[in-house]
């Protein structure tokens, strides 16, 4: 509860002349569910893309306090960020639709498996160590399939799953990389209330398993129910940071959401199922 897992310091991101993220700082504590909320265009997804290495920040620092000590994520290339323990999902689901559910989960364990094959050379000859590693990988996949209730769909192509199942699969796949920090980009988007409820349950389960969570969400019901801490962004700046109760009472947050005195920002009232 006490130590931060992720520290974001004075983060700036400019696209040409547009400043999408402007000097944002916040901490995500280890073992917490931290939610990042804000109206459309507030810069939430940009912050996510910065943390997970899809964009390089124009300025500022992102420090991960992982199991291997401090890691400056702002200076780490994309695929190495995942290796240092940050996993993510995408707002518009990005699965490998032509591969089966199980294959999706094995691809997520690529690095562990690849190391066990002596980088492909041993595997071609079917060395025993690889078989062992693959068995373990399948076992881990099976565990997450059970947790996400997808076990019976394991051999179906991911693209053929219903929408809600695809969302769960994407989370399962991220978890198969054994992350210390899981970044969820609007996981409840497009889910019905019952599915949202199950999702909240799943997120809590992951948190209780020891993985910290960073969450972008529009569904305020989910956010307020499960978050330990909420960071509010508006126009690329942080306007509030605190417990759900504190944030809900914050005058600036309310006006940001109601779009007070603001022409270009579509008012998006925090409501159940707003996605």
């Amino acid at each position: 509860m006490s130590a931060p897992i992720l520290q974001v310091r004075e983060l700036v991101m400019r696209f040409g002349g547009l400043t999408a993220v402007n000097r944002v700082s916040f901490d995500a504590m280890a073992g917490d569910i931290t939610a990042v909320i804000g109206p459309n265009g507030a810069g939430k997804t940009t912050v996510f893309n910065l943390i997970t290495g899809f964009y390089k920040p124009s300025a500022g620092e992102i420090i991960l306090h992982g199991p291997a000590g401090q890691k400056p994520l702002h200076a780490t290339v994309g695929h190495r960020i995942a290796r240092s323990g940050v996993a993510r999902t995408f707002q518009n689901i990005r699965l490998f639709p032509g591969m089966t559910v199980l294959e999706n989960l094995l691809v997520a364990q690529h690095n562990t498996l690849q190391a066990a094959t002596f980088f492909g050379i041993g595997a071609a000859f079917g060395l025993g160590r690889y078989r062992q590693a693959e068995r373990e990988a399948v076992a881990l996949a099976r565990r997450w399939l059970e947790a996400t209730r997808l076990l019976d769909r394991a051999d179906d192509p991911a693209g053929a799953l219903p929408y809600g199942a695809q969302r769960r699969l994407e989370i399962a796949r991220a978890m198969c990389t054994n992350p210390v920090l899981l970044c969820l980009d609007e996981p409840a988007a497009g889910l019905n209330p019952r599915e949202s409820e199950e999702l909240a349950e799943l997120i809590r389960l992951i948190r209780d398993g020891g993985c910290s969570i960073l969450l972008i969400e529009h569904d305020m019901g989910v956010v307020m129910r499960i978050s330990d801490r909420v960071v509010v962004l508006d126009h690329g700046q942080k306007i509030a940071d605190g417990t759900p109760a504190e944030v809900r009472a914050d005058q600036r947050v309310i006006s940001a959401y109601l779009g007070e005195g603001d022409e270009d920002d579509a008012p998006s009232v925090p409501a159940e199922g707003a996605a």
Binding site: L95, F96, G98, N111
Partner: peptide, 14 residues
């Protein structure tokens, strides 16, 4: 094959 399906997801998986 994963690369063929989705390169960005591949990067996110390390």
């Amino acid at each position: 094959e994963a690369l063929r399906e989705d390169e960005i997801a591949c990067r996110a998986l390390g």
